[in-house]
């Protein structure tokens, strides 16, 4: 009995000290971490909508779209919109940002994904994503031949990932056409 009490007391003490240390560290770091995350998000939005200085959250959620931002220039004028989406990829959700300026795609960036390395993971490269720039309407993914006006070349052997990304972009464009024009 005495032994159990002793062991329990020591264990509780270790847990308590650990909890206090973690609590302290967490409160110390929560502000910088939040600031860092906000900065990362802003960086990504700026990357897809060049020239925008400020972003106003329009509090819109629809389908795969998690957030819509109005991108404003230095003088407060509307330059375009940034859509943050979670598309259903091959290996899990693909978190992406799509910039739309005057009805055309101004940039696409992929934040996180769980696609296959060497195949679907190449969707995060600008070599694939830059195809979308300047396009509008409903985009189709093709596997062979030369992509036309509204067509995108899929990544070899990663059609599902390519279609998922294109689907997200199509949704953003559709939303723009319907609600923001």
């Amino acid at each position: 009995m005495r032994e159990i009490a002793n062991i329990t007391a020591r264990l509780v003490l270790i847990m308590a000290v650990a909890a206090v240390l973690l609590g302290f560290t967490s409160s110390l770091t929560s502000a910088p971490i939040a600031a860092q995350e906000a900065a990362n998000k802003t960086e990504m939005r700026k990357a897809v909508l060049e020239g925008a200085a400020e972003f106003e959250d329009l509090n819109a959620v629809s389908g795969q779209i998690q957030a819509v931002f109005r991108g404003k220039g230095a003088a407060g004028e509307t330059l375009g919109y940034v859509f943050e989406l979670s598309a259903a990829g091959f290996g899990g959700p693909i978190s992406m940002s799509v910039g739309v300026r005057a009805g055309q795609v101004s940039g696409v960036r992929i934040a996180t994904h769980s696609e296959t390395p060497g195949l679907g993971a190449n969707a995060a490269n600008q070599a694939f994503l830059s195809q979308f720039e300047g396009k509008s309407g409903v985009l189709r993914v093709i596997k062979a031949g030369s992509p036309g006006e509204s067509e995108i070349m899929a990544i070899t052997a990663a059609t599902i990932t390519s279609k998922a990304v294109a689907g997200g972009i199509n949704e953003a464009l559709a939303y723009y056409e319907a609600k923001l024009k």
């Binding site: 264990l11 270790i14 847990m15 650990a18 973690l22 770091t29 910088p32 971490i33």
Partner: peptide
């Protein structure tokens, strides 16, 4: 359990500190 708590606390603290600073 004692080792695991120590290790996990250490790693979590390191993770948080790195993310912040």
């Amino acid at each position: 359990p004692a080792y695991i708590v120590v290790i996990a606390t250490l790693v979590t603290a390191v993770d948080l500190l790195m993310k912040a600073y």
